[in-house]
Write a protein that binds this DNA or RNA. Structure first.
Lengths: 225, 225
DNA sequence: ACCTGAACACCGTTCAAGT
DNA sequence: ACCTGAACACCGTTCAAGT
């Protein structure tokens, strides 16, 4: 490595691979944000012509798809305990999903909206459904359970870490001042924001609620009063 | 109005107002999608120079903020019953939120990520907290409840109607083929997708779960077995 | 096969100018 | 005050060309 090439920071070049392109794109997103990722900037980071990536990808949307796939691939399920009951398994896999999303806050808009069916997610879903059906739930109800858990998890991470799509808000009144007129809201917010505890509470509430739906008689009794 | 100006479709021009600009922007998003909204296209629709809007808005991000605000303003709470218990009120306001989000699927990415504290939302939140505290919850726990409900609602609508941020996916394998290897998943999906019922199930599960957390002894008993 | 480079039709926004 | 129009520094992608 010559001193000159060391001085030019990035372009060390590793022959360009689909995988290498995707990993570089994810690095740019994590570092500079979703809007900062352009085909031209990606090329500069790769040390190639802006058009070189098009030999491995049909368009920029495919780049996004690859990035989402790469993120989900980070979720390893090997140490996910299969021995516990359905509640433990569903809770653990939801927490694991949350952890992965939280690792890439700048990528949340594409994670939350681009379709992706990576083996990790599908395997988790399949095992979840198996456990739920074994516990007495019909297939459609079981699917509802895991769909709602996923929706809750994505929504919660988005609320916690999601950056405004379309660029930063023009600083007008912030939350604190707007809420001054609402006493209960102001008081509640003053107690602080603890996203981990909040997520955990909602997760357990969802699981408890679904467990109760499993036995309708019990649920009906509890609803009164 | 001359025949010529009637022939040129759009540019009827109404002197340009902040409100009129925002409403036109929302109409473009609803019709053509988020990426189709450009300052130049907006100007064409308004019948003005591309720079005219900058007299009412500092930048495009402010346009997005206005659009989100306008969407939330659609939610009218006047007929939201205040007489029922906290569960009825929380369920109703969550459903109302969902209805508004579903009316603007193309705008979901900005709704889900841009901060907005419109009176409608704040008033709803405040009343919810009041009811929850009256039911015995401490302020922080009450805030957790409504935050989780909002996260769940946003996440669910996003999963149902969210279009891929960054453009349509390059058609590779679709969901159906990818899931062939996962029998429980395939069987569950074959039963069909009913988003309304699914949302309702998750909503009630969340509320049931939170209701149970309210009385810890009862919850602890139910957890075993 | 893999990569380049010019070119096209777009962007958001600045800036000086018009009324 | 309100709006225009040229200009700047960007975009994603097509297309012909190089090795």
């Amino acid at each position: 490595v010559s001193p000159a090439s060391r001085a030019t920071a990035r372009p060390v070049r590793a022959t360009l691979t689909h995988d290498y392109i995707i990993r570089t794109a994810l690095a740019i997103i994590d570092r500079d944000g979703l809007d900062a990722l352009s085909m031209r900037k990606l090329a500069a980071e790769l040390g190639s012509d802006p058009m070189a990536a098009y030999h491995y990808l049909p368009n920029k949307a495919a780049l996004y798809d690859g990035v989402v796939e790469a993120i989900y691939a980070e979720m390893d399920l090997d140490d996910l305990s299969l021995s516990g009951g359905w509640r433990e398994y569903l809770a653990d896999s939801a927490r694991r999903m949350r952890d992965v999303l939280r690792r890439h806050p700048k990528a949340l808009p594409i994670i939350a909206t681009r379709p992706a069916y990576p083996p990790s997610i599908l395997a988790m879903a399949d095992h979840s459904l198996r456990l739920l059906q074994r516990a007495g739930l019909p297939p459609s109800a079981a699917l509802d359970v895991i769909s709602c858990l996923r929706a809750y998890t994505v929504g919660h991470v988005l609320a916690e870490l999601g950056e405004p799509v379309g660029g930063p808000t023009t600083a007008t009144e912030d939350a604190a001042t707007a809420m001054a007129a609402y006493p209960h809201l102001a008081a509640a917010i003053a107690t602080g924001y603890r996203p981990d505890e909040q997520y955990e509470r909602g997760l357990l509430a969802l699981l408890d609620g679904f467990a109760r739906q499993r036995s309708p008689r019990q649920a009906r009794d509890a609803t009164r009063g």
